[in-house]
Design a protein around this nucleic acid. Structure first.
Length: 426
DNA sequence: TCTGGGGTCCTAGGACCC
DNA sequence: TCTGGGGTCCTAGGACCC
């Protein structure tokens, strides 16, 4: 076994950059992308960051004057577009390595094992330029002997202009200096709570963290924290995961555009989220047997609060949407209390297994061996061809007054024929 | 007026068993 | 007064990620 060497390729301000590809006139403007329901800012372009806006800020808290004065462009999130752009980036990256882990919508780890004879920084530049050419998106590349160090190298590449978006920390003469430069909250695996705890104990940067005793770290931060510190010391503890792992749980939940008080609307929303979740379940050829429904009021408001959840186990694992809608509606009726303004409901599917591993039953047909699977597959096919939600359940309602807001949505340029951009000759 | 959604992993403690 | 011990399984909650 040779030494591990990985590159982390990360798209810069991914959502904002996707919008810029199709709206070149916003490239130099501050751009912000909103969460579902147009609630908070989830992605910011460099120019928006410069104005002091941070991720997670509710849009209504951003000064209107600031928006107008700087011509800030705000968009609803367009996941159809981002998902498709992501797939194109990943396709391009797969040219550069036999082993690729798609870590998130905008990040991938590439194994560069066996490539050490190359100038890896130069290779990183090639990767960067090729993605730009093929997909039009800017990326940064960090290279290191472990995933955690590759993350740090990537962060470094982004923050220092001289790196021009590519940095290799491997055997770098200033290795410790770079770790000293990395504040604890910027270490992959250290969140808000642990960062606070480390600072309380006098540990402020990655280098100081590597000097802490293993026993102490494990006691305070479990084995997860210990792995992180070992990775910082150059010992690989997190393998590249090439295979896409089947989901263990599937959640569908959304805040409402407006508060909902009556049971009927909640039942409709629950049915709708059930439909989404079970469709996802089927798309991975899986079945589930546990349904959990949760609901809550708006915790930011100074009004009576209520939150609850409950679960139901199906007699047999299923992929049949009505099985889940029945169960979910039953649960909802149990936990619903009148008199509250609800902000959100959600459905979670758990105890998920692959269809082929579903147990048989002597006394009742399973999802696989009666008509239910055929009906579902048929419905999925039609919705795939004719557009999603062509066939749906009446229990999801028609008016859907509870639906989320998406007022600044851009077209689905790459995934919908109606939205394909037109190039006009002058 | 308006504050996201979807995941994973680990551990402590209770339930249960012999 | 004294009231076992060890193993496994499950779950809720807390931490993290993007």
């Amino acid at each position: 076994m040779g030494k591990e060497i990985v590159a982390l390729v990360d798209c810069n301000s991914f959502y904002a950059s996707c919008e810029e590809v199709f709206n070149p006139d916003i490239i130099d403007k501050p751009v912000g992308i909103l969460s579902n329901n147009d609630g908070i800012i989830v992605a910011l372009s460099k120019n928006l960051k410069k104005l002091g806006v941070t991720r997670g800020t509710p849009i209504f808290k951003i000064n209107k004057h600031l928006i107008r004065k700087n011509d800030i462009r705000i968009f609803s999130s367009n996941y159809a577009l981002y998902g498709d752009m992501s797939a194109r980036v990943m396709d391009t990256l797969s040219i550069f390595t036999p082993e690729l882990e798609i870590y998130s919508i905008d990040e991938a780890f590439l194994s560069l094992k066996g490539f050490e004879y190359k100038d890896l920084t130069q290779y990183g530049r090639e990767i960067k330029e090729t993605v730009k050419k093929h997909v039009g998106l800017p990326v940064s590349v960090g290279i290191g002997p472990t995933k955690t160090l590759a993350k740090i190298a990537n962060h470094f590449a982004k923050k220092h202009n001289f790196a021009e978006g590519v940095f290799d920390i491997t055997d770098h003469p200033d290795h410790d200096k770079i770790l000293r430069w990395t504040q604890v909250e910027n270490i992959w695996g250290i969140g808000r709570q642990y960062a606070k705890m480390l600072r309380r104990n006098g540990i402020t940067n990655a280098f100081e963290f590597t000097q802490a005793p293993d026993k102490w770290i494990q006691k305070k931060m479990t084995i997860v924290g210990l792995r992180t510190v070992k990775e910082l010391r150059g010992i690989s503890c997190l393998d590249l995961e090439k295979d896409i792992k089947p989901k263990k749980e599937i959640v569908s939940s959304k805040s409402f555009g407006n508060p909902v008080t009556d049971l009927q609307n909640l039942l409709e929303a629950t049915s709708d989220y059930c439909t989404t979740a079970v469709k996802k379940l089927r798309s991975e050829n899986q079945v589930a047997s546990l349904v959990i429904v949760f609901l809550s009021t708006n915790r930011f408001k100074n009004e009576p609060q209520y939150a609850n959840y409950a679960k139901v186990r199906l007699p047999l694992p299923s992929g049949y949407t009505p099985d889940f809608i029945h169960a979910a509606n039953k649960i909802l009726k149990r936990i619903y209390r009148p008199g509250y303004k609800y902000k959100k409901v959600g459905v979670m599917l758990a105890d998920i297994i692959h269809q082929s591993k579903a147990p048989l039953d002597l006394f009742q047909p399973t999802y696989l061996d009666d008509d239910r699977k055929i009906i579902m597959d048929c419905m999925d096919d039609i919705n795939e061809k004719m557009g999603s939600h062509k066939i749906t359940y009446a229990s999801s309602g028609i008016k859907k007054t509870w639906q989320m807001r998406r007022e600044q949505l851009t077209p689905s340029y790459t995934t919908s024929w109606q939205h394909i951009p037109v190039v006009k000759a002058i």
